[in-house]
Amino acid sequence: MQVTINGIETRYVLDNEGGGPWLTFVHQLGGDLSVWDQLAGYFRDDYTVLRYDLRGHGASAVPDKPFTVADLAADLAALLDALGAPSTHLVGLSLGGMTAQHFALDYPSKVETLTLADTLSRTPPENRALWEQRAATVRREGVAGLVPATLERWLTADFRQAHPEVVEQIGEVMTQTSAQSYAFACEALRDFDVHARLGGIRVPTLAVAGRHDPGTPPAATEAMARAIPGARFEVLEAAHLAPVEQSHRFAALLETFLDTRV
């Protein structure tokens, strides 16, 4: 399905067989809603499950101007309004987790619970140049050249060897991401910092990290969790895409967390 949100034609998939509370999943940089396929299937009998493509990703339109993580949060708010969802349980991965944090801070009445996977609450000053360089590289050379090294960071060697079809799909989605959109997202990540505001999050929060994540170390995710009142922190035996690599364990954690909050 497609709907225009803040001037951006946005793809979404809604599974509401269960007709239960809303549960929204937000994907990573260079990803799309397909990263949540397995988890959506797990929860759709009990929840109204929403997945969508961030602006410039997947089948959503490519923006013609830079955007911020706050803009991505505003897109989600507008999408929920368009679909008639008063509030949602919210799950975000990496860039999606940053979007989820911003959303919980900017639209607190729309969030029931918050689950943040493999993400952090700010880009350290020393890492800003990295995102600048990555944006410049993508504008110059395209996204495809980044895919092999990215997949090595995102998934452990054991998982890549055991599940080549999953790795291929994730890599293909990243390859198809427009260079302009990817560069804009890198610059949004460069400027992201909500750490000082996290004490204002008042909904139940679960934070999950991959023990073998080199790009977003578990310590960074844990620091985010410590700044959110009452947040729970868990570590899974995975790299950056813990909800993919440890999908059953992640689903069990999320199910238990939601069961105690619904």
Rank of each mutant, 00 (worst) to 15 (best):
V26R: 09
V26D: 08
L29S: 02
L29E: 12
G31T: 02
L33R: 05
W36H: 00
D37C: 01
L39D: 03
G41V: 00
Y42P: 00
Y42L: 05
Y47R: 01
Y47S: 03
T48C: 13
V49F: 12
L50H: 01
Y52P: 12
Y52L: 12
D53W: 00
L54T: 12
L54C: 12
R55E: 04
R55A: 05
R55D: 00
G56K: 03
H57T: 02
P63Y: 03
T68D: 07
A70S: 14
D71V: 02
A73F: 03
A77H: 15
A78L: 02
A78M: 11
L79F: 13
L80H: 14
A82N: 13
S87F: 02
S87P: 00
L90S: 10
V91D: 04
V91P: 00
G92M: 05
L93F: 01
S94T: 04
G97M: 06
M98V: 12
Q101N: 01
F103A: 10
F103D: 12
S109C: 05
E112C: 11
L114D: 00
L116W: 04
T119I: 00
S121V: 02
P125G: 07
E126T: 13
A129T: 14
E132R: 06
R134G: 04
A135P: 12
A136W: 06
T137M: 09
T137V: 00
R140H: 09
E141G: 05
E141A: 12
G142S: 10
A144C: 06
G145Q: 02
G145E: 02
G145A: 04
V147P: 04
